[in-house]
Every structure is written in structure tokens, then in C-alpha cells.
């Protein structure tokens, strides 16, 4: 075997640690050099945005945050964008979590966004947090008919009846939108199946990119719009920033998905590079083997 074929063999069976190294470098360098690219919103993302924009002021929106720290890097930008848009539109936000750690995610957006950027919005009047309840889709099915059957207090232990924005709210049937951020089970699918469809409530939301293909079949009948992963979040941010130019001022704060798309794009290119490389070496070696077989 000549030297060329030795190299080809080496590349063909490349130790996966080399792949890891290149992917690592791709992420690190693109993060350091802060590469960003423009985003063109796709119809599914646009539908989510337009649905929120079409809601009259004071409409009730339930925001289930069904994710945890593991998927936070991918889902937090869209959660932030949802909350900002709802706050801009003066919609009443009801946060809820079916994942134990989802309540921490809710606490995060309340602290970092609502209390910091929208201090005029008041807890209990403009937004409230139901907190976490175990029971997965069971919780969704119950609150569709009777919220107080499960929730007598909010996440902070305040009696539900004493919260102004809960006055006259018995269940979520009268809500105008379910806007979820979901990383798996229970998540968007359960909100569609146990609340959106039986309760005739519009459902829109975002999920991890891996989960998105599973949810496409629900669009557009049972799902107003769907946002898969960081790319969709970046497109959503682009739409929000276009309508509310103040968000264009501080990219690091308001357009985090757009900033994170840089490393994703470069990593995709690195993966494409490896796929091309693997195929070239594979074809060279296959041809060599065929020639050797012919000689024999």
C-alpha cells in the first residue's frame, strides 16, 4: 500500500476525537469572532409571530415552560422573545411548568426580563406564575376544566383567589393562546392533545430542533405555528426586532439566538466538511478494492 492510500485509510477510519476537536474549534472560534448572519423568517415562524401580534391587548396567554437547564441554551432565546413580545403587546401572561426545573426557567424570565425591562408590569395583574405541578399531561387535562382543582396557590404560595388576573378565570378554555417552550415530554404535543384540540384553544410554540419533525404533522390544523431550535428563534427575533426597533440596539441582550446562530452555522459547515471527506475517502478505497479484485 502506498503512502497516499495509507493517508486515505487513516482519514476514512478517522478517530472520532479528531472530529470532536474540529467541532470544538468551530464552536469556539465562531463564538470568539462573534459571527452573525441575517435570517429570513419561514412561514411557520411568521405564523407564531403574527398570531401573538393579532391578539387584542389584555388577551390571556398561557406560557408553559417545559424545559430544563440542559436545553436552556437552545430554548432560552425563544422563551425570552416570546415574553418580550407578550409584554410589548400588553397581554396577560400566565406561566406554568410541567417540568420540575421549568419553574426555575420561569423565575429566570420574570427576574431578567419582566422585572428588569418592564418594571411597569405588575405581578398578579399583568403576569403570574402557577409554578410546577407533577402529573404531566394529567395537569393539562385538569386545568382545561378546573384550574383550582390543582392550583390553590401560585408558585409563591399566594392564594389563587387573591390574584387579580385570576378573577373570573376558572379554567384555561377561555384563554386566547397557548404559547409553549418545550424540550420533550411532557411538552408541546401534550398541550396540543390535552388542551389545544379538546379545548379549542390556539396553540403555538417552540421546541428543540430534534423534536420539531415530530410536531410538524400538527401544523397548521392543531398548531398555529412551530419554531424548531435556535434557527427559528433567530428568525422570530428578526421579526420582533423589525417591529420593535429598540431590540436592535443591544444584540447580546435582545438577539441572543441570532448571535448563537453563528456557531451553529460554522458547526454545520464542519459537519458537511467531514461528510464530504468521508465520502471521498470511501470512494477512493472502494475503487482500489474493486481494482484489486479485478487483478485477482
Amino acid at each position: 500500500m502506498n503512502r497516499f492510500h495509507q493517508i486515505v485509510e487513516f482519514v476514512n477510519d478517522l478517530d472520532k476525537r479528531w472530529v470532536f476537536l474540529v467541532v470544538g474549534l468551530a464552536v469556539v472560534t465562531s463564538t470568539i469572532f462573534r459571527l452573525t448572519f441575517p435570517e429570513i423568517p419561514t412561514p411557520m415562524v411568521r405564523s407564531v409571530y403574527e398570531k401573538v401580534e393579532s391578539l387584542p391587548e389584555g388577551s390571556r396567554v398561557i406560557l408553559p415552560f417545559d424545559y430544563d437547564p440542559a436545553s436552556e441554551p437552545e430554548l432560552q432565546p425563544m422563551a425570552n422573545a416570546f415574553v418580550r413580545l407578550c409584554a410589548e403587546r400588553n397581554l396577560k401572561m400566565y406561566f406554568i411548568a410541567l417540568w420540575p426545573l421549568g419553574q426555575n426557567m420561569v423565575a429566570g424570565v420574570i427576574d431578567d426580563i419582566l422585572q428588569t425591562e418592564y418594571p411597569h408590569l405588575e405581578y398578579g395583574r399583568d403576569y403570574m406564575d402557577f409554578g410546577y405541578k407533577s402529573g404531566n399531561e394529567g395537569v393539562v387535562a385538569v386545568i382545561l376544566t378546573d384550574i383550582k382543582k390543582l392550583y390553590t396557590t401560585d408558585a409563591h404560595g399566594t392564594a389563587i383567589d387573591s390574584i387579580p388576573m385570576m378573577a373570573g378565570v376558572r379554567n384555561i378554555r377561555g384563554f386566547d393562546l397557548i404559547l409553549t417552550v418545550s424540550a420533550g415530554y411532557p411538552g408541546l404535543k401534550e398541550w396540543i392533545q390535552y388542551a389545544g384540540t379538546p379545548g379549542n384553544i390556539p396553540v403555538a410554540g417552540g421546541c428543540t430542533a430534534v423534536q420539531a419533525p415530530l410536531l410538524y404533522p400538527y401544523y397548521p390544523d392543531q398548531l398555529v405555528g412551530l419554531m424548531g431550535g435556535i434557527k427559528a428563534a433567530a428568525e422570530f427575533e428578526a421579526l420582533v426586532a423589525e417591529a420593535y426597533p429598540k431590540f436592535q440596539e443591544d444584540k447580546d441582550r435582545f438577539l441572543t439566538a441570532l448571535v448563537r446562530m453563528g456557531p451553529q452555522t460554522v458547526t454545520h459547515l464542519a459537519i458537511i466538511f467531514f461528510i464530504v471527506l468521508g465520502n471521498i475517502t470511501f470512494q477512493i478505497l472502494r475503487r482500489k478494492r474493486q481494482q484489486e479484485a479485478l487483478k485477482r
Partner: peptide
């Protein structure tokens, strides 16, 4: 007032 429906809507379920 117990609720509001968006333009285009033709029904409202009063579940309270």
C-alpha cells in the same frame, strides 16, 4: 364582560 374573541371568530365557549 367575561371574555373576548379575535376577529374572524364565530364562537366562544364560556366555561365559567
Amino acid at each position: 364582560a367575561i371574555g373576548q374573541a379575535s376577529p374572524g371568530a364565530a364562537r366562544y365557549d364560556d366555561a365559567d
